[in-house]
Each structure stands twice: as structure tokens, then as C-alpha cells.
Amino acid sequence: MSFDVAAVRAEFPALAAGAAHFDGPGGSQTPRVVARAIHDTLVSPIANRGTVTRAERSAEAIVGGSRAALADLLGADPGGIVFGRSMTQLTFDIARTLADSWSAGDEVVVSRLDHDANVRPWVIWAEKAGATVRWIDFDPESTELTPQHVADQLSDRTRLVAVTGASNLIGTRPDLAAIAEQVHGTGALLYVDGVHLAAHAGIDIAALGVDFFACSPYKFFGPHFGVLAASPALLETLQPDKLLPSTDAVPERFELGTLPYELLAGATAVVDFIAGLGGELAGDRRERILASMAAVDEHEDRLRQRIEAGLAELESVTLHSRARHRTPTLLLTFADRSAGDAYRFLAELDVNAPAGTFYAYEPARRLGLADGGLRVGLAPYNDDSDVDRLLDGLAKFVG
């Protein structure tokens, strides 16, 4: 399958500024088709959703279209797509709602591999409910989180397990299907932070057996808001806090206030854009998304291997991303200089690779990296010239 990176790059106006962007894990650049969809929505007739006026019908169509698009992206039911301000906000909301059914003796399981957005909401609400918090470890040498790590923390009192689909710090991808089988064997629910994973892999939450999957479109070329996917039947069993006159229908009962129609239109545009990344493909949108993401994976993995080969020649650089199955996200530290120094040095060369822990508080501590490291994250618009600039810059920095 072809992947025309030059054609992809041409769709991103920000790249004309000349920087090599390895900062995608914190938020990708945006293609012009997404910006156009946002603009066109803002300047078109729009109103609260309804069926009477043209403006009302436009809003209704945008919301329905975005639910359908994101369902195609994630392998979900459109009736189970919930929109929110951010993945963090949605996770806090679901944690608060589920905690209504927890009590002393119940157990909530979180992971030391996760971004804090999939840790602290569960810890806070478990403690409020009097439930016990148990921790899934990972191996700091291999950076693997295995199904056995999860099994070690499960019991017949487990109510929920929260785990990442891929670490935003080091890229590790746990075996979600195997973990889901274990979790469901205890009768518990599985909540997955898919923010980092969704930017690099085709997602099928039904095949994975995930109960909740949360992500953020701005990590895969879209606008800034959050998305939660779950089965409508599961959502029907939950009663979130909401305003009295607001609808009790699913998924709307989980959405607070008027939705950002322009951002939802941008999300639909980005799903269609992703479906075309593999070129002219046959099939419906879902099939084209999966084929395109397979092409993206092949492209990014080739560039990752180039970077790792170049890093191997730099003796003072340590690569902390070592899991066998991972995203093209590399965390680096340096023998005698700080990652922050590397970040600033590369920035002077117009190579954007930030340093820090990136809210991955627990994995950074487990790796003994209180200040984190330099994170090099690939995106589909990266090319070989970007990699050349990165490796040349790092060689100068350590040399």
C-alpha cells in the first residue's frame, strides 16, 4: 500500500514555517480541510439543535455526523459516542458517576504506566467512596506492561480497571484484548485511555473488548475536545449528574451544555482526512480508515527504526522506550546534560522535540526520571528529512 508523505505534508499549512515537528504526542498539526470545516460552520447559520429552522437542522446534522464519523474511527456505535471538553474532564465525570456504586471493600485498579488523566480521577473517587486502590506495575527495564501485571492486581472485589492503550511517555502498548478478557473474568469494567494510541493505530473497541475508550481529536489532526466511546447499553445503566431540564437520552445525558458544533464539524473532517491517508482506497469509510492507519503504521515504524539506528551511534544517549509493541514515541536522556538543554538546543535548529514528564507522573517516577526526558514523537507528516535534521541536531548536541 502506498503512503505519499509529500502529498500528506502538503495538506498541513503549519509545515510551511519550516520546523521539523516531533511534538505530535502533545498535539498534532492541523490539515487545512479541518480548519476549513471549522470556519465554514462558524460562518453558516447555526443554532441550538432542533428540526424546525435551517440553523437548528444544521446543528443536528453536525452532531449526528460527528458521532457517526468517530464511531467509524473507533469501531464503535454512534449512539455510544459522548463529547466533552477533554479526555480528562470525561474521565472525571465517568469516575464520579461510577463511584456512586462503589463502597468499602470494592477495589479500583490503576496503572503506573498511565498519564495522570487515567489515574487521578479514579484514585480521587475511589477514596471518596471508601474503595481500595490497587496498582498495576510495569517492568522499568523492558518497559513492558503485561497481562500478568494486570492479573496480579485483580480479585473478585475489582470493580474497574483503568489502563492506557499506549503510553504517551514511552510508547508501550499493552495487550488490551488479553487484559479485557482478564478484567471481564472478574466482572469488572475496563476503561482505556486511548489518547495516544488512536493517533497511531486502527482502533476496534468491540474486538478489543474495551468498555470505555477515551481519546482526544487534537492528537490526530483534529480540534481540541474529548471523546468517549462505550456501548449505549452500558451508558444506559449510568446516571450522571446533570441539569434537571436536560435530556435523559443516551449519549446526551453525559454531555453538559451546548456542544461546540464547529469543533464537531472539524472532527468529522479529520476522520474523512484519515480515511484518505492511504491514497485512493476501495471500501466504506471504516474500511478505508483501517487501511490508511496500517499505511501510517508502516511509514512511522520505518522512520522510528531510522531514528533508533542513529541514536545507537550516540554513546551518551539512553533510549527508555524499549517495549516490543509500542508507538513511534521515544524518550531520551543524556549522560551529562539535561533533556531540557537538548529541547532548547534543538529548538534553535527548528527541530521541535519537547522535554518533561508530560503528565505521565507515575511512569516517570517508576523509571527514576523525576524530570522526564526528551520526547521524540513521530506523526504521519514526518519524513526522512525531518529524521535527518533530528539526528544531526542530536549529534551536535552531544558532540
Rank of each mutant, 00 (worst) to 15 (best):
T329S: 01
G50R: 05
T172Y: 05
V296P: 05
D341H: 06
V317E: 12
G368K: 00
G165K: 12
G194K: 08
V210D: 13
G79S: 06
L374Q: 00
D341N: 05
K242N: 14
V110H: 07
F12N: 04
D388M: 00
Y343T: 05
S111F: 01
L145I: 04
H21P: 08
I62P: 04
F22E: 08
V8P: 08
P140R: 01
E255N: 03
A35N: 13
M1R: 12
R324P: 02
I170M: 09
G209S: 12
A312Q: 06
G64R: 10
D248I: 05
F22I: 07
A47Y: 06
A294V: 15
L169D: 03
G80D: 13
T329R: 11
D383H: 01
A198H: 14
L145V: 05
G283R: 10
H21Y: 11
S321A: 13
F225R: 07
E107K: 01
G278Q: 11
E56Q: 10
H21M: 09
R159I: 03
R120D: 12
A188W: 06
R253P: 01
R36W: 10
F397M: 03
L15N: 08
R286D: 02
R324Q: 15
L208S: 10
F3N: 07
V183T: 09
A7T: 07
G209T: 11
E315S: 15
W125V: 13
R344I: 08
S338Y: 10
E236H: 12
I46M: 13
P251A: 04
